[in-house]
């Protein structure tokens, strides 16, 4: 398990001690999941969803969102109705 790669994808900065600790922990998790490979699943349908539900839809009708809060005002920084973020170009 490449802990540095995973940390980078999650935008996390890890200390060397953390890297070692998480590397071990994640290794244990993966080992545990890999137990599943010991089973013969040839005749088992892949699970699409744990609920066993299909086809839940919405009608295409516009409604006002149910909120009395203005998310723009709650955001850390904004200007003229836009959310402000670090410069991306």
């Amino acid at each position: 398990m490449d802990i540095e790669h995973v940390a980078k994808l999650a935008r996390l900065k890890l200390t060397d001690a953390e890297k070692e600790k998480f590397s071990k922990q994640m290794g244990t998790i993966i080992e545990y999941i890999e137990k599943l490979n010991e089973l013969d699943t040839k005749n088992v349908e892949p699970t699409a969803h744990v609920l066993g539900l299909n086809n839940v839809f919405r009608e295409d009708a516009a409604t006002q969102p149910l909120t009395d809060q203005d998310p723009i005002k709650d955001s850390p920084a904004h200007s003229k109705g836009h959310y402000e973020v670090p410069k991306i170009i």
């Binding site: 920084a77 836009h82 959310y83 402000e84 973020v85 670090p86 410069k87 170009i89």
Partner: peptide, 8 residues
């Protein structure tokens, strides 16, 4: 707003 920022 600021030229050093982006807006969404």
């Amino acid at each position: 707003g600021s030229p050093g920022k982006s807006y969404v």
